[in-house]
Design a protein around this nucleic acid. Sequence first.
DNA 1: TACGAAATCCTTAACGTTATCGATTTCGTA
DNA 2: TACGAAATCGATAACGTTAAGGATTTCGTA
Lengths: 342, 342
Amino acid sequence: MTRHRITMKDIAQKLGITVTTVSKALKDYPDISKATKIKVRQLADELQYQPDSQAVALRVKGSKTIGLIIPEIVHYFFSNVINGIMNQAELKGYRVLIALSNNSMEMEKKQINLLFSTKVDGVMISLANETKSMTHFDILKEYDIPVVMFDKVNEDFDTNKVIIDDVKGGYVACKHLIMCGCKRIAHIRGPKNPLNSVGRFEGYKKALVEANIGFDPSLVKECMEVNYDEGYQLCKELLKLSIPPDGIFAVSDQVGVGALNAIKDAGLKVPDDIKIVGFSDSQIAQVSNPPLTTIHQPGYEIGETSANLLIEDIELRKKDPDHVFVSKQIILDTHLIKRGST
Amino acid sequence: MTRHRITMKDIAQKLGITVTTVSKALKDYPDISKATKIKVRQLADELQYQPDSQAVALRVKGSKTIGLIIPEIVHYFFSNVINGIMNQAELKGYRVLIALSNNSMEMEKKQINLLFSTKVDGVMISLANETKSMTHFDILKEYDIPVVMFDKVNEDFDTNKVIIDDVKGGYVACKHLIMCGCKRIAHIRGPKNPLNSVGRFEGYKKALVEANIGFDPSLVKECMEVNYDEGYQLCKELLKLSIPPDGIFAVSDQVGVGALNAIKDAGLKVPDDIKIVGFSDSQIAQVSNPPLTTIHQPGYEIGETSANLLIEDIELRKKDPDHVFVSKQIILDTHLIKRGST
DNA sequence: TACGAAATCCTTAACGTTATCGATTTCGTA
DNA sequence: TACGAAATCGATAACGTTAAGGATTTCGTA
């Protein structure tokens, strides 16, 4: 007994006018009398009329929907990004369709096609770690659908991007340890892919060189999964060195807190014996004991900026389809948050 | 110079056949010859034809999209739920449109209308704390759009629900403290709304009564925001009591870890002096020091179950519109995860 | 009174797809 | 050869909406 949806047709019939007039009345066209406008609106309210956005999208250009593809959702950083995106989208009257790539390039391709099929007005994406080639973006390029990449981007792909300066972040983190008096600074780094961890590693080395502290490869350990357990284990290895480090820069807060607990379990004290700096300023950095000094990564702002950039782009292309498109790259600032671990 | 989208019309023209035949060929209708089917499919591949799902949705019933409304996204539990939902939806060929209520009832209403307008096939929702009345769900009821409520539900609203037994969870948590030898067990509870914290409080009391330990109101503190800082502060108050507690059951892991750090900062030891149990099994419970004993709340499974229930419902109603609908309430199991804090 | 401008509403067509039914062709069989 | 069943394809209409233009009415002014 599913009731049929109220359409303009119903309103028109009840009022003895045509669908066109109803449409115009609801959209406040000047060629409709005040009287009918009122009648139409009243009845629309009464019947709880809701426009069928599918039909609208079919008729006019633009679906007022943007697609978002991220590698995973159970991640403090991405949750924040999504939050930023959704709030801006809401403000500008756009819906957000979220798709997960699960860090697989195959999946990423599938989701792009699906979003294209849904006629999204634009796509925001943080690339899967696995993603090397960019051919699955061709369809978006070809149809002139705006793309904004954030966080995990591809250097060669020409589009708007929102990122942070990982090199600078790593540099600031390491420099802070140096300022705290550390002489032997270890780094628990991430994998070669994505580029973020490479950048942080670069920054770490740069700060060492600048301070005339030699770079010692034996003080660098590499994670695969970048989680708490790896941080714990790799830190234990660092502690076994003949001369253990007096400072550690971890590629993420998870890894940093893992290291922190490994040190405590080994009977050493943080920050007295060893100081630690993490990366991201996620929740666990605030609640560890002692709380973790870290580099704040502005997830919410990244989301907001990306959404604004995309929507701006969408509306510009709609207004002026022949506009010459010059891609921007926005680098948001990170900053150090000093806490008890240093 | 936006290229126009390839439609069936293009394929038809190039092949000298009609749109109808193209449609049938692509959908493998029996009344199309093998030869044309092959030709159509080849050209469709070549031109990278992607069906316009808006047009399809307009024509056939069902948009293959489900709406999801949650209070907030930056929350470990909800991220997990979303993950469960997305994975099941993906498997069954549904898209997920996520909307945030920001814990406001006004916003919730707006999002429901928006989802209705988008012609979602069903809605999954975890209610905003603020939400008391249910009239904004009328439009979904009226049009027979399936609704699944999870986590934060309304008792009087008749629909499919997926929840956990908070009373039992609280009971198990408190009982565990009793088994560990605690005699004075405090509880840092959540607000009166949503009902979850009330249930946990009930369970706490039940376990006390059963063990012949008197319920002492002075051992119960109430949070408003349910975060780390509140846990820290309220625990400090508990420590100031003439006879401090020897066990604490916290309504959430955030609060639990806050309490844990307050105890450590006061120079006491966990679990030797005071034992703590949290609730949810979020990430911070695993990485605190010592790691927090907690009640595992199966977010991922809640998401999966909810999505399955909804999709099942959607497909059933499509097949048999007159099916008599009997709502189910699924209660998922929680269990204690023993860690270092007890 | 009569003409034309202004106001108001409607007709038509279109967006892309698909279900229904009708039209045509092919081909086997009596 | 002729009839009809089977195979193959197309014309039409419909989903709900809106833009462009046409049709009608109203009304002021010469």
